[in-house]
Nucleic acid binder design. Structure first.
Length: 473
RNA sequence: CGGGGCGUGGCGCAGGUUGGUAGCGCGCCUGGUUUGGGACCAGGAGGCCGGAGGUUCAAGUCCUCUCGCCCCGACCA
């Protein structure tokens, strides 16, 4: 493949090449910021729309809270403040005058939202509150990569308040399931869902759950998080309600989010030496029609291409590439780089035979089909591609997941192909820290199953948890 | 913050050691011929070399300062 670095030997450069050359993104004038170009924004719109449906279906509503957060709000919960302070951007001046109180550009919105919830919640009848917002946030990151870690990014953040601890925990897990299903079903990315260790949890949370995906370079990517905030925020922000028993109680809260980082995940899970490969359900363009139009037949071919596109109607998102200046070969590469799942070729030969040529992006497989069958064949093929992409990603993950018995095994596993290493863990932070220090790997998630009978891979004590370790983005 | 790399037409780069009329590829524009895996020919447009200062008859090139970007690491929800 011309113009993009070799994926096997130079993954980081390959990633950068793909996202720049497919015109998904460009570097912004400000360090660490990115411009999300129409093609990638189209993917984000699909992500947003599909997730939003799932949020609404589980009872949530959207709202919007301000970008600016007074410093005093952020300081109320000390663990939360300390977690975020190093990467907060502060506004100190406005309208040419110094502000009496600095304003944070939100790194996340718990503190403003809690302030409002304190006003809105009086009675158990006001609960639960189930609000989501689609917004941008800013975190002053030292080292950035487009989509994976940028100083400003787009995300959704859900913030809920509940009457009981059980209800909050159920909500936290419900959202984790929503995320897992969404990412697997729509993005064709298999994930491991589990709980974060104390060291890795959200600043201010009681418990953090996450879904973790494996990139094709063997590194993990946190693809979504769901936090059970307990009553920490309720207590410092004084969010109380009068319960049926006449007692004044603090609410139990959750917060959860996914971001434009998911787009980086799509690239790194499904991309190949030809560029991006998009799962059909998320692809802005599902089918591209490339007319092969030598001059004498040009009019006829373009007319047929338009007819075919039209005949697919609502069955698929179709684009006809009728640019005159480019040759078919150029267009094939162009759309493969952009990851369009299915290509249709129509030329004089096809018109004569009443057929079209179809080419799958995921496998490169080429087949011909009679024109009349397209309306049923194309949707079926798209679903087949969707399934095949998930299956491929899943078997890659399976092939790169190992049980390791000790830290040496973990180290050599990571030095080799990398991936998820599964092992027992005693629950002590010192053991977790030792692994990170020696191997660079962290606990991605803890899963409930099967710790019994295992020992901690570091200290050898009885394991309390089963952990997935990996190096992560 | 540490290490490395780099700023020269839109993009990618050469030129620098040895100062002497700023070049190549791609892209772009016009015309023509082409179109089943990144077309070809011809003719064009476009940069005073990141910025400031200095040395010199003369600076892309040498010196000083400065700004910025990328990668790796550290850090990081």
């Amino acid at each position: 493949m011309r113009d993009i670095a070799d994926k096997k030997t130079n993954f980081a450069q390959w990633y950068t090449d793909v996202i720049l050359k497919s015109e998904m993104v460009d570097y912004a004038p400000v360090r660490g910021c990115m411009v999300i170009r129409p093609y990638a924004y189209g993917i984000w719109e699909r992500i947003r729309d599909l997730l939003d449906v799932r949020f609404k279906a589980t009872g949530h509503s959207n709202a919007y809270f301000p970008l600016f957060i007074p410093e005093s709000f952020l300081r109320k919960e000390s663990e939360h403040f300390e977690g975020f302070d190093p990467e907060v951007a502060w506004v100190t001046h406005g309208g040419g005058e110094a502000l009496t109180e600095r304003l944070a550009v939100r790194p996340t919105s718990e503190t403003v939202i809690c302030t409002m919830y304190a006003k809105w919640i009086q009675s158990y009848r006001d609960l639960p509150i189930l609000i989501n917002q689609w917004s941008n946030v800013v975190r002053w990151e030292k080292s950035t990569r487009p989509f994976l870690r940028t100083m400003e990014f787009l995300w959704q953040e859900g913030h809920t308040a509940h009457r009981t601890a059980d209800e909050a925990e159920a909500e936290t897990r419900l959202i984790l399931d929503v995320y897992r299903d969404f990412v697997q079903d729509e993005l064709a990315i298999p994930v491991i869902a589990g709980r974060k260790s104390e060291a890795e949890k959200f600043a201010g949370a009681l418990r953090t759950y996450a879904i973790e995906a494996l990139m094709t370079d063997g590194q993990a990517l946190q693809a979504g998080t769901s936090h059970n905030l307990g009553q920490h925020f309720a207590k410092v922000f004084d969010i109380q309600f009068l319960d049926t028993d006449g007692q004044l109680k603090h609410v139990w809260q959750t917060s959860w989010g996914v971001s434009t980082r998911l787009i980086g995940g799509l690239v790194m899970v499904h991309g190949d030496e030809r560029g991006l490969a998009l799962p059909p359900r998320i692809a802005p363009v599902q089918v591209v029609v490339v007319p092969i139009a030598p001059k004498p037949a040009r009019e006829a071919v373009l007319r047929e291409a338009a007819l075919v596109a039209g005949s697919l109607g609502k069955a698929a998102r179709v684009h006809v590439d009728d640019r005159e200046e480019q040759t078919p070969g150029f267009k094939f590469n162009y759309w493969e780089l952009r990851g369009v799942p299915l290509r249709l070729e129509i030329g004089p030969r096809d018109i004569a035979s009443g057929q079209v040529v179809l080419v799958r992006r995921d496998t490169g497989a080429k087949l011909t089909a009679p024109r009349g069958e397209l309306a049923t064949l194309v949707p079926r093929l798209l679903e087949e591609i969707q399934g095949a992409m998930l299956a491929r990603a899943t078997s890659f993950r399976e092939a790169h997941t190992r049980d390791v018995a000790g830290i040496d095994q973990l180290e050599s596993f990571l030095a080799g192909t990398g991936g998820f290493a599964r092992a027992g863990w005693c629950g002590e932070h010192s053991c977790e820290a030792q692994i990170k220090q020696r191997t660079g790997a962290t606990i991605r998630v803890l899963v409930p199953d099967g710790a019994a009978g295992h020992t901690c891979l570091v200290c050898g004590a009885q394991a309390r948890e089963t952990a997935y370790f990996a190096r992560a983005y």
